[in-house]
Amino acid sequence: MNTRVAVIGGTGKTGRAVAAALSARGAEAVPLGRAAWIDLAGALAGCHAAYVIAPNMHPDEAAYVEQATGAALRAGVSRVVLHSVASPYAPAMPHHVGKAQAEDVVRRSGLTWSILQPGAYVQNFAPGQTLRLPYRADAPFGFADLDDVGEVAARVLLEDGHEGASYELASFRSTVGDLARALGSTVTEVRPLAWAAGEGKGLEPRVRDWLLAMFAYYDRHGLPVGTVPMRVLLGRAPRALVGP
């Protein structure tokens, strides 16, 4: 019988990448979307492990993860892996702090746990587009490729030896400007308030404010992430900074 692994929040791009990597390793991925929360413990029944992905900019990620881990305990799931973010405790970015609080929930859950902390996704930047960037284009980043993240997630979910580990993940180091050039895109730097009045105008005010805080942090510090953990966990070279 194939090992069954639940992917909570598994209908988005991250969940699909994790599910594909699990299937490639012969496991049965069980994507669980919003409807599964009606009886999450029932949906998790028979699963060996669970990968937990909170919705983007969730207002209370710790509560979300607490519900997920509680359901996993009731269902008899033996292992949970949390999808977090690189540099989770960055007080200037509220959504990062939410992930730090969620990590604390997992560590105290009573489950066997691991935590993945990827950098910004390469896939957030579409090839051949004009990108309006509300922070400096030369800020340093560690970018994570979704396929690389999915492959690491599958390994950590299915293999022993990762219990109690937290892994920051980046496929390569770059700036947004260099990444855009590699993808055949162009970058136009804009003031954050111009972004808020344009692309951010229709967002919920809380989400818009959190994003503005993130842009201010990126402008000052970027989001550097080392590449060694990704390389070691993959057992191969991660994606490089190349064109599409």
Rank of each mutant, 00 (worst) to 15 (best):
Ala50Gly: 10
Ala62Pro: 04
Arg4Phe: 01
Pro59Ser: 07
Gly70Leu: 09
Leu234Val: 04
Leu146Tyr: 10
Met93Leu: 10
His96Lys: 12
Ser23Met: 09
Arg108Thr: 00
Asn124Arg: 10
Leu40Gln: 04
Glu66Trp: 01
Val122Thr: 04
Leu158Pro: 15
Ala153Cys: 11
Pro134Arg: 00
Gly12Tyr: 05
Met1His: 11
Val232Ser: 14
Phe141Met: 03
Glu199Arg: 14
Leu73Tyr: 04
Leu179His: 07
Ala194Thr: 08
Val106Leu: 12
Lys201Arg: 15
Pro88Tyr: 03
His83Met: 08
Gly119Cys: 01
Glu168Tyr: 04
Arg231Gln: 10
Val190Lys: 02
Val149Asp: 11
Met57Asp: 14
Ala75Met: 04
Val97Ala: 06
Thr14Trp: 06
Arg173Lys: 13
Glu103Asn: 09
Arg220Gln: 13
Ala75Ile: 02
Lys13Pro: 02
Lys13Val: 13
Thr69Leu: 09
Ala68Asp: 13
Val225Tyr: 00
Lys201Trp: 10
Ala153Pro: 02
Glu66Asp: 15
Leu146Phe: 08
Gln101Cys: 09
Gly243Tyr: 02
Asp178Ile: 00
Thr227His: 08
Val242Ala: 15
Gly222Met: 01
Ala120Ser: 14
Thr188Asp: 14
Arg74Met: 08
Glu163Asp: 11
Pro134Gly: 01
Ala240His: 11
Pro229Asn: 09
Val156Ile: 11
Gly12Leu: 01
Val18Phe: 11
Ala170Lys: 01
Thr14Asn: 14
Leu211Arg: 08
Gly150Asn: 06
Tyr135Arg: 01
Ala237Asn: 09
Pro238Cys: 07
Met93Pro: 00
Arg191Leu: 12
His95Cys: 03
His95Asp: 07
Gln123Glu: 15
Asp148Glu: 08
Leu233Thr: 00
Arg79Glu: 01
Ser166Ala: 15
Ile38Asp: 15
Leu133Val: 07
Gly10Phe: 05
Pro88Met: 09
Ala102Ile: 00
Asp178Gln: 13
Ile8Thr: 09
Gly202Asp: 14
Ala139Met: 05
Thr14Lys: 04
Gly226Ala: 14
Leu183Asp: 06
Gly98Thr: 06
Pro140Gly: 10
Met57Arg: 13
Leu32Met: 10
Asp219Gln: 03
Glu204Arg: 13
Arg34Phe: 03
Ala54Leu: 08
His96Asn: 13
Gly142Trp: 03
Leu211Asn: 09
Arg25Tyr: 08
Leu212Pro: 00
Pro94Phe: 07
Ala144Tyr: 05
Ala86Glu: 02
Pro238Met: 04
Leu233Tyr: 09
Val30Ser: 13
Asp39Trp: 06
Gly161Ser: 10
Gly10Asp: 07
Gly42Met: 03
Tyr167Val: 07
Pro118Ala: 00
Leu44Pro: 01
Arg208Asp: 12
Val149Ile: 12
Leu22Arg: 11
Ala72Lys: 03
Glu151Thr: 14
Tyr218Lys: 02
Gly235Met: 05
Leu133Ser: 08
Leu32Glu: 07
Ala180Pro: 15
Gln101His: 14
Ala240Met: 12
Tyr217Ser: 13
Leu40Asp: 05
Phe172Glu: 03
Thr227Ile: 14
Ala92Arg: 11
Pro91Thr: 06
Leu169Asp: 02
Gly15Cys: 06
Cys47Pro: 01
